[in-house]
Amino acid sequence: MTGHVLLIEDERNIVEAISFILSREGWRVDTHLNGADATDAIRRSKPDVIVLDVMLPGKSGHEILREIKADPDLSDLPVLMLTARGQSRDREMALEAGVSRFMTKPFANADVLEAIRNLVDPA
């Protein structure tokens, strides 16, 4: 199972590593490095799944998630949220806003791959 992933993350070396492992598995990967116009990037990219960091320059991952869920054209997109904070409040906020999956840094590459596969093909 492969598909189209939009990775919204400001840490360039993480972007490079995740893009590499996804591409190697046959996924098409678009990347976006800031939060300010991330929602526009989602509309342009039309991905199958979004990987979204919480702490982004310009706009937080939580705000972007709320915008996604408020837009009827985007609200069904599965979102994997990444955070370096690991606090229960972050997780609660993300779940309340309708996140599909939540992962805490530092994560294993294999876990990210598995989470994305499951989001695109829950079966």
């Binding site: 840490e11 993480i14 904070r85 690991g86 840094k105 530092p106």
Partner: peptide, 10 residues
């Protein structure tokens, strides 16, 4: 944590 994540992934 972000840096550790990047190192771990690479």
């Amino acid at each position: 944590l972000s840096t550790v994540t990047a190192i771990r992934s690479a």
